[in-house]
Structure formats: structure tokens, C-alpha cells
Design a protein around this nucleic acid. Sequence first.
DNA 1: AATCATGACAACCGCCGAGAC
DNA 2: GGTCTCGGCGGTTGTCATGAT
Length: 277
Amino acid sequence: MGRSPCCEKAHTNKGAWTKEEDQRLIDYIRKHGEGCWRSLPKSAGLLRCGKSCRLRWINYLRPDLKRGNFTEEEDELIIKLHSLLGNKWSLIAGRLPGRTDNEIKNYWNTHIKRKLLNRGIDPQTHHPINESAALSDPKTPPSQVTPAAPPQNAAVPSTFPYLNAVKPKTEYSSDNGAASSGTTTDEEIRQNSDCYHSYNTNSGHEELNLELTLGSRSTRSGEPGRVTGADSEPWWAPETGETETRGVCLCCNLGSREPCRIRQTAKWVPQKTDRKF
DNA sequence: AATCATGACAACCGCCGAGAC
DNA sequence: GGTCTCGGCGGTTGTCATGAT
């Protein structure tokens, strides 16, 4: 069928953004807020594709972004989340306030991959490399592949034996033609989270709160209590006055598996009107 | 000093799902 | 129910900086 282009490409700039363009975009969003990306460039006087404006704002101009190097704690959190979610960068970003999916994706590809390889861990499967080779060997029946015991001192549960419960899209997409659609359901994540919890409880690893929702396609539904990726607005619980930034609920401490109390008792609304710049 | 290789990351592209009509 | 538009995501590419030769 084909789709019409998102903008008139003949009259749009490409490549790096100039300071003037950045300022125009910032000024416009200050005045009018986010949204309507398609019409934004024209309204803001920018010769850019709406998508490009959105990306620039989300990844580099948003005021709540944390710049600078990733900390060791962030490294390990990314690795843990990736082991559970695969290349769901927006979901991973949702657990790292101030970080964007693009930033995490780049960081993964340039730093963490190498870091894991140096540890002898396959960055896609999170299994030891030799074991991953066995797993990917079509001659080896899955039943004959025995997951190794979790490493005692590793910061990351690299051989987490329940990972096969949910197959990250990129890791298994070539399994066969009848493989999963690549969409991880909430239920799958929840199940996997439970497995992960059990594993971590037994092994003494820090427990992760992974009450995650795939928010990537629900952002227009305005569903209260969502947890989303890089696109997320801060949410505000009027009954408590608490906010959550980019989908990370402040009332849920890392490690708590209890349902979010605020989510149960308060109505969540997007805090769009009083953004701070 | 010049050239090449590599790393880092900003930006683009194509696809998809949700919602509107 | 079908079609179209929009916003969003993940993969990939392009470009610049830095280091090695």
C-alpha cells in the first residue's frame, strides 16, 4: 500500500542540529508543550521533519536528561534489565531516570557488549560464550543443554537459567519461521520477573522491581499508572503530590515486589502543564 | 605530518500498533 | 471492518574525534 512520507522531505534539513534550531525547538515547546510533531516544524519555523524534532527533543534537549558518563551501578542495572527484556531499550530506559533509550542503546553497543565479552559472557544470551555456542548449535537438542550454575561472585546473573522463559526478540528471531512475533507480553515479563525474583532470592543478588508494562504502544491511551520508555512524561499523583519521572514510580523502591500503593489509591495523570525548564 | 583504523554517538530510516475517521 | 495518520521503537548509518602507525 505504501505510506505517505511523514513530512515534505524536499524542504527539510538533515544532519546535525544547529544551536539556532535547538533554540527554536526549545522555545516552541516551552510555549506550547510537546505533541503534534508533524505540524511542529512548520509552527516553530523549523525546516525539519517532525520525527527529527521529536528525536532531538527527547534525546538531547529535554530538561530532565542526565548527561555524563554512566555509573557502575547504571551499567549493572542495564545488564540485568537487558538479560530480562532483550533489546527493549525504551523499557530499560524507563528504569534509568534521565537516560534515553537511544543513549542506552549506543552505550550498550559501544561499551557494555565489550565488557560482557571480556567477562566471557555472550551479550545477547547472557550465557557464558561456550554455552551460548552450544545453545545456538542446531545439532544440539535443547534438552541436552544444561545451564551452568550461577556464578557466585558475578555482579550479573549471567547464566540465569530461566531466561528461556521469555526469548528476547533479537536473540531468537532467527529460530524459525514460526517463532514469536517478537512482542513480549506483560504476562511474559511478569512470569519472567517472578522467575528472576526466585533466582535472585536464592543467590543473594539484589532484587529488581520489574513490574513493567510495555508502554511503547500505549502512550496515546493515557492509561494511568503506565511505565513507559524514553517518551514518558512525568506522572503526578494528585492525592499524594508525588511525581514519577519517565515512568519510574517513586513510590516503588528498587527491590519492592509489592504493588505500587499510589497506583492503587491515586489517579495518575500526566504532568504536562508545569514542566520546568 | 600524513594516513589509516577505531571508537563514540548523533541522527536517520523503516516498520509497527493505536486511535481516529 | 477497513484505511489512514501519527507517534514511537529498534536497527543501522554517517560523521567526527582520537589514537596508532
